[in-house]
Design a protein around this nucleic acid. Structure first.
Lengths: 106, 106
DNA sequence: CCCATATATGAGCAATTGTTCATATATTCA
DNA sequence: TGAATATATGAACAATTGCTCATATATGGG
């Protein structure tokens, strides 16, 4: 009696694209540099050089990661003089991170 | 006045290992095969061949993914005759997935 | 306008990842 | 016990990833 199972299969196959999107979202949170950037941004907007400094990685590396975050609409930018400040687009980000934190910290 | 920033930096640097753990958790959800397996398991326990069938990937590939899920304690197993049934260890998994789904579906 | 500073971008590379194929292990049934 | 079935495992490989280096772009100050 795999009727129940085949219903599940149906639901998942039918929404395959959705799950791929969700997986892609999680993938973004799945790198510690990006995660730390996002965590930092939940506390305060920051510019590239600030992030680069506290993560101890190259400005270039930070820029690359920020581009990924921006492309996926998790962060937005505003220019202030020579600096470009990054901030979260919404607070889903914080919710998701908290969700993961809760699991890890039991 | 980067006092605020340096506090954030401190908090993140101090908890660096925690964030790496959290990132590793998200990484697991960041593959669509694994995600779909987890989603399926929120609905019903399933054995390897059932999963393999509905995901349309090799039994071997499923086993490999299940091993990852088991190693990270997201799923547990029980043997029933020739089959090994996989189930979620707790419902944090569902919570996390729902979190991500909510963001994607706006 | 030119120079210093801030950020972005592209190429290249090592490391990691997800899959498949072949094979090993384990359990049931005749 | 031996064949059939279910699952696990290891090697190999292509694809992806995250970083660095070099360089491009853009802004503000003198």
């Amino acid at each position: 009696m795999d009727n129940a199972i085949s219903k599940i299969q149906g639901a998942i196959t039918r929404n395959s694209e959705l799950f791929e999107e969700v997986a892609d979202l999680f993938k973004i949170f799945g790198d510690s540099s990006r995660l730390k950037i996002l965590v930092a941004l939940t506390q305060s907007d920051m510019c590239v050089s600030e992030i680069s400094e506290f993560l101890s990685i190259t400005q270039s590396a930070v820029s690359h990661q920020l581009r990924i975050l921006k492309t996926s609409n998790l962060v937005k930018t505003r220019r202030v003089g020579k600096n470009i400040y990054y901030s979260l687009t919404d607070d889903h980000v914080k919710t998701i991170i908290d969700c993961g934190m809760e699991h890890v910290t039991e």
